[in-house]
Amino acid sequence: MCTLPEPRRLPGDLAMWFFILAELSVFAILILAFAVTQALKPEVFAEGRAQLDTSTGLAMTLSLLTAGLLAALALQQVRLQRWRRGAGLFVAALLVALVYVAIKLTEYAHLGAAGLGLEHSTFFTLYWLLTGFHFLHVLLGMVILAWLALGCWRGGLSVGGLESGVLYWHMVDLVWVVLFPLVYVIG
């Protein structure tokens, strides 16, 4: 007996995917601007990057990825109708995301105190614009995670809505894994 293959399925709402594509396009422009300017001013970028701590960038990467894992696990629990367990995992994701925020704010404060602000050099202009824009997306992602946690606790959220919210967080992760090596690692 032959079995039909499972139909391909796009998780979440289609509108969220169009939103994700728009966001990825904007980040692509910023990332390319960073890369092209680096090629034009390699010394300025090498000097600027030397002021950044790669291990701090790695710690932020691990916190974002771990929050992504917890959000994905929460979605699986909801699919199994374990709503309260899903809510707990969304709260855990939110707490791990807070670690990223704390590290990022510490880094921003350190750079600000050292006089490495937006106008210090071309590197730092693009550093603040690119990472600041990503930081704002993380904050929005955390609002969404909190809303998902609350929705799971109270019940009444659709699985499609939950998938869309979780997808947004993964998009933030996706951008970071390309942004991190470009800003912190590649000389």
Binding site: T54, S55, G57, L62, L65, L69, F180, V185, I186, G187
Partner: peptide
């Protein structure tokens, strides 16, 4: 996730 963690550490080491 574990693979992503290992590859992230690998990124820093390769850099």
């Amino acid at each position: 996730w574990a693979t992503l963690v290992v590859l992230s550490v690998g990124t820093v080491l390769a850099g």
